[in-house]
Design a protein around this nucleic acid. Structure first.
Lengths: 159, 159
DNA sequence: ATATGTGCAAATTCTTTGCATTAGA
DNA sequence: TCTAATGCAAAGAATTTGCACATAT
């Protein structure tokens, strides 16, 4: 019952994991080691990850990359995971904490991601609902050059 | 000077076309028939189109699909065209009128697109700039079920 | 026991690239 | 003329699918 199999899995993370597993279960999905491991990684680590990144973050050889795609499918279906689209041809995934959703600021140079906890779009969704749309959602990603990359660019005499 | 080669190309559209060609020219790009035809289509028709759709909308056999991709590249570079990302794995492109940018409401069922002329994100970009980011831009797409699709769903007794 | 999940290989989809040829400035 | 643009074919990258085998419930 007590777990110490991972270096840094806090009690809160365990609670989230158990809750997530329960969601999966009650949606008729089976609990398998790839899914459990994926959820652990997604709960512990920050930032949205690509399928390939996720696969690399799993214990070596635990499963095939294809299984990551398929597992993510189950996690998305059950809303445990949100898909992010940074417009570079690769989808990334992050754990859905269920709290009010946030947005990302992506650096064009180094691809670093910062979360922006404010959501400006509540009024927007309301407006669109007034236009007659149902099930309104939105995606909003912000792009820019981060401070570090601006400094990096300012230093060298390459220009 | 007068043109009647297209059924419905208004004077305003011609002005836009000429302006766009000038932008291309002064950026060191050559004016070719595929590029001219692409711009015509993009100026005349509404809604963002995929590369494949654009190719189909061109006069038959005018150019190879690959040329559409490459031409769009030139149009994007010169900011004549904006790329839209509806998160379905296919990029779409629309003519950049240069006026304040708008956003799209995409119907999940029928994929119809409506423009939303309001932009909520000016304050957001300002905030992100205050966080130290430079060259801040954003993408915002709204998804929902359009009125027609809601009615279509309500009628049939399939449920 | 049995349906769901997985691995491996191969297919799909969208987009990009290499290279010889064509054509705009 | 001389470089940029095009066509065709082929490569690439991310993701999905088919099918036999493995496994959670």
């Amino acid at each position: 019952m007590h777990s110490h199999d991972h270096a840094s899995s806090s009690e809160e993370e365990n609670v989230r994991l158990e809750r997530a597993l329960e969601v999966l279960r009650s949606a008729g999905h089976r609990i398998t080691s790839p899914r459990k491991a994926l959820l652990k990684v997604l709960i512990q680590e920050h930032g949205p990850f690509s399928a390939e990144e996720l696969h690399r973050m799993l214990p070596a050889g635990l499963c095939d990359p294809v299984t990551v795609y398929r597992s993510i499918g189950a996690l998305e279906e059950t809303n445990l995971v949100r898909r992010c689209d940074f417009g570079d041809g690769t989808y990334r995934y992050e754990f859905n904490t269920g709290e009010h959703h946030h947005h990302h600021i992506i650096c064009r140079q180094c691809s670093s991601v910062r979360n922006l906890e404010v959501c400006f779009a509540d009024g927007l969704e309301r407006l669109v609902r007034q236009m007659g749309y149902a099930n309104v959602t939105h995606t909003l990603e912000i792009f820019g050059t981060c401070v570090a990359c601006q400094e990096r660019r300012a230093e060298p005499a390459t220009e």
